[in-house]
Write a protein that binds this DNA or RNA. Structure first.
Lengths: 153, 153
DNA sequence: GTTTATGCAAAGGCTTTGCATTTCA
DNA sequence: TGAAATGCAAAGCCTTTGCATAAAC
């Protein structure tokens, strides 16, 4: 999907979500969504704040936090807590299901896919009667690069 | 394994770990380990602090945080970040591998096991050249109880 | 014209840090 | 005795909250 296409798509989804839930369609909300979908990878609130300030659009941190809640609610972004207290976000629409490998040495986060996770979700749903909304799988350890560095020293 | 047996076992592991890493064997550290292994389920630092205060042993929060780092390092406890900023811990020695179902409505955390997660770990290790130390899989959604309540209203 | 959202700054909660005191080796 | 750990309080960081102002409906 082209970038412009995706932007149009998520803007429409968000717009409908706001309408159906009686929330107002403010320019700040759409500007935030646009910025979120303009980049790849993970980001935290501070980075998003910085990016928007650099461009034309300045929003308050409070509005960023509020809007992220809305975007989480309509599944347009996902939130992760990898390490520390700071939450990490990523866009989630039309992005393939993936999980995370987190290096405990350098802090790098890599993505990987494994279809078996879907089977685990299904089983949890059936056996435990759980209505699954999303999951987050983090595998922590040492990445290839840091293993090599360790061996060298 | 009996409770006393397990206590003896983890105390020994911790003792050896401290020795090998040049850390001191303070009474606080062993008291904290004892308290951690005296209960089932998850806990946060504040709860651990409260429990130890109630008993005879009062340690500072700073020492709790420091000691948890040591216990994490020798794999005697695990740390999770389910929701919010507060870290949750659980003992991990001789405790079966399990993952977590987290209800987004009531906040309840249930455990479940699925052997396929081990296969995913192995694959990540082989394909990505990642040296896996531990993982955490959280499935978020609505628990059976909250589904029933929702239907009733 | 109401009601909701924004922005700012203050407050809050969890965690880390600095430093004097104590304790282990 | 010397180095490391403890305890306390302060500082830090991320996030939430309160309230006046602005904007959507």
């Amino acid at each position: 999907m082209m970038v412009a296409e995706q932007q149009a798509s998520v803007q429409r989804i968000f717009s409908e979500y706001l309408e159906q839930h009686g929330h107002r369609k403010t320019p700040e909300r759409f500007a935030i969504l646009t910025e979120v979908y303009a980049h790849e990878g993970h980001f935290d609130i501070e980075r998003l704040y910085g990016r928007m300030k650099l461009k034309k659009y300045r929003v308050s941190r409070a509005t960023l936090y509020n809007t992220m809640e809305l975007l989480l609610d309509c599944d347009l972004v996902r939130r992760h807590r990898f390490t520390g207290t700071q939450a990490q976000f990523e866009k989630s629409h039309a992005y393939r299901q993936h999980d995370h490998l987190i290096c405990t040495v350098c802090g790098d986060v890599a993505e990987f896919c494994d279809p078996r996770i879907q089977q685990i979700r299904n089983t949890a749903s059936e056996v435990m009667g759980f209505d699954v909304r999303y999951h987050t799988l983090q595998i922590h350890g040492t990445c290839r690069t840091c293993q090599a560095k360790r061996q060298a020293s």
